[in-house]
């Protein structure tokens, strides 16, 4: 199927028949998944279901043994490396919050702003007032204006998670992959994070991997349940949580 403008699919993210095995262990098994532009998708599933490996494939860290991975209908992600994929407009938040701890919140965002990533550009770059505006906008979204000049390492766990999401936003990506954003957060923080992601979803496509079912319910979006590297069930949170296989392998335990 080829669409008029040369796109092979209208989906923002398209995975079809993807296989990955590590030393004989089938981490991803005939995985097919489609995320539409502007959609927010929640991915759930037990440990070892292949959620993080799927993220690794999309972001170029892991090469699939076979299968198609298309971004924005035309770009084959399996041929690109991390830096190229990031430049295309895919941002990734890690499971463990990963920020540049010895640098200020502001510098963390400055490093993330979408611009030339080359060595020469970085060597000769000057700060300009426009940067401050862009950083201000992100800080407002992630609600961290008050800690702008603090070292990222001094932030609370929840604040680090938000800062990392802010770093993704500063990259101005089309697609955000967010791995367990509320792990270790308090209930209030979890609620705020759900609000934040919904806000981000207004103009960006988001894929969230999360274990916290309250949080997934709060997002109120289509849910995909993975198991043993393949899609077990897909649909609304109610449909998925009533699925017998899902209860058996994931929720029921």
């Amino acid at each position: 199927m080829t669409m008029p403008d040369g796109r092979k699919t209208s989906a923002m993210l398209y995975l079809d028949g993807v296989h990955v095995s590590f030393d004989g262990f089938h981490a991803i098994n005939n995985l097919s998944l489609t995320v539409a532009p502007g959609e927010m998708r929640a991915i759930i599933g037990p440990n070892g279901a292949g959620k993080t490996t799927m993220m690794d494939i999309i972001t170029g860290k892991t090469r699939p043994d076979q299968g198609d991975v298309l971004f924005d209908g035309r770009t084959d992600l399996t041929k690109l490396d991390e830096a190229e994929i990031a430049e295309l407009g895919i941002g990734r938040k890690f499971q463990k919050p990963t920020v540049f701890e010895s640098q200020s919140v502001e510098d963390n965002l400055l490093l993330s702003l979408r611009e030339d990533r080359g060595v020469r550009a970085a060597l000769f770059r000057q700060r300009n007032p426009d940067d401050t505006d862009r950083i201000d906008r992100v800080l407002e979204t992630i609600r961290l204006q008050g800690v702008r000049h603090q070292l990222a390492g001094s932030l609370s766990h929840g604040q680090k998670q938000w800062l990392e999401i802010g770093m993704l936003l500063a990259q101005d990506p089309k697609l955000l992959l967010v791995d367990e954003p509320v792990a270790g957060m308090t209930d209030v923080e979890t609620h705020q994070t759900a609000e934040l992601l919904k806000e981000i979803n207004r103009d960006k496509t988001v894929v969230v991997v999360e274990h916290d079912m309250t949080f997934v319910r709060e997002l109120g979006v289509k849910v995909t349940c993975l198991h043993e590297g393949t899609v077990l069930a897909e649909g609304s949170i109610d449909q998925v949580s009533e699925n017998e296989r899902v209860i058996e392998v994931y929720l029921g335990r």
């Binding site: 991390e82 830096a83 990031a86 990734r92 990963t98 490093l111 990533r117």
Partner: peptide, 8 residues
């Protein structure tokens, strides 16, 4: 790896 995924 964070730096790499930021596109550097």
């Amino acid at each position: 790896s964070r730096t790499r995924f930021l596109g550097y």
